[in-house]
Nucleic acid binder design. Sequence first.
DNA 1: ATGTCAAGCGCAGCTTGA
Length: 262
Amino acid sequence: MPFTLATWNINSVRLRAELVLKLLREEAPDILCLQECKSPVDMIPFDLFAQAGYGYWAARGQKGYNGVAILSRLPLADAGHIDWCTKGDARHVAARLENGVIIHNCYIPAGGDVPDRTVNEKFGHKLDYLTELRDHFGANRPEKSILVGDLNIAPREDDVWSHKQLLKVVSHTPIEVAHLADAQESGAWVDITRADIPEGQLYSWWSYRARDWDAADKGRRLDHIWASRDISAAGHGSRILRDARGWTQPSDHAPVFATFDL
DNA sequence: ATGTCAAGCGCAGCTTGA
């Protein structure tokens, strides 16, 4: 049974519950992975999502920061949480579908403003988080697995509006790109979005600070869908719903979609 | 470099994070 999956950094699931419902109604992915829910799990309006047909969920939350949730209209079981860097934050949750597929929903640390771990702890945290993620999937080779989320890195030159101008900007620095590549290689993860759409500029995030995000189009592809190699050929239909960035009181991220024939 | 959001705390408007 094919299923469609979307990943979206919602930047507050309570403030934007109506936008989540709009996405579920209009685009109807089978599974929606959210990041930056910024809410304890018991305050997320799962009843609203259930009324829209999404009765299954797995989530981890904390007050004010981070937070990840998987909403599904297909039966799904909580498959645990990994606390990379052991800070007790809510940056990962996994779920298992009835067909055995494991979905990892990740929110990688943004990394602060200065791309130098000697003066910016948050940048060190980001690199260390990626290293621990790499080691985890190196030791636990993923099979029948999908990893999605706001990875907070735009790895390719055509994943940013200006490669040259962003080389020293956190999210596109060579050291981050190398750490992400190491994490990807350790799990033999396939970047489904780029396997599907190998050519051309592709963005999933536009800053709130740009006065006209659409016209300026200074975007970055920070949100990703990866699949383990054994199921990567089943992935297709990738797209980014740019329109959602223009919805009323939007998230600064747009949802990324892929379909898997499994 | 600029700039705009959101949550917490707590009831105004600051701080932190992105």
